[in-house]
């Protein structure tokens, strides 16, 4: 990974962290408070299934991507901010292609 992609990736992660905070009303947190490899659901940040639906909707709106309702795949993509950023990046590339 060259320096440019690393910076872009980092910016996307921060952007997604902020999107999570704004969408789910986590007014007590700032984007840097959520480690990019912290589990978002369950014992980590503590999000639940309604948050997952809300977040999927926000990601689709913001990045004009499609999220299939395959639960197993979604679980993997929605695990952390890092995995979400990688997923959004891949979907954008796919949509652009």
């Amino acid at each position: 990974m060259n320096m440019e992609t690393a910076v872009t990736g980092h910016a996307l992660e921060q952007e997604i962290a902020q999107l999570i905070i704004d969408t789910l009303n986590l007014e007590h947190l700032s984007a840097t408070d959520i480690p990019i490899d912290q589990p978002l659901f369950g014992d980590g940040l503590g999000l639940d299934s309604v948050d997952a639906l809300e977040l999927a909707l926000a990601l689709q709106k913001r990045y004009a991507i499609r999220i299939e309702s395959d639960v197993k795949e979604a679980r993997r993509h929605f695990a952390t901010i890092a995995s979400l950023a990688a997923f959004v990046e891949a979907q954008r590339a796919a949509c652009a292609g």
Binding site: V50, L53, E54, L57, K61
Partner: peptide, 10 residues
């Protein structure tokens, strides 16, 4: 014609 927020709806 926007999708509805699951939280708002629920």
């Amino acid at each position: 014609e926007q999708p509805l927020s699951p939280t708002q709806f629920g």
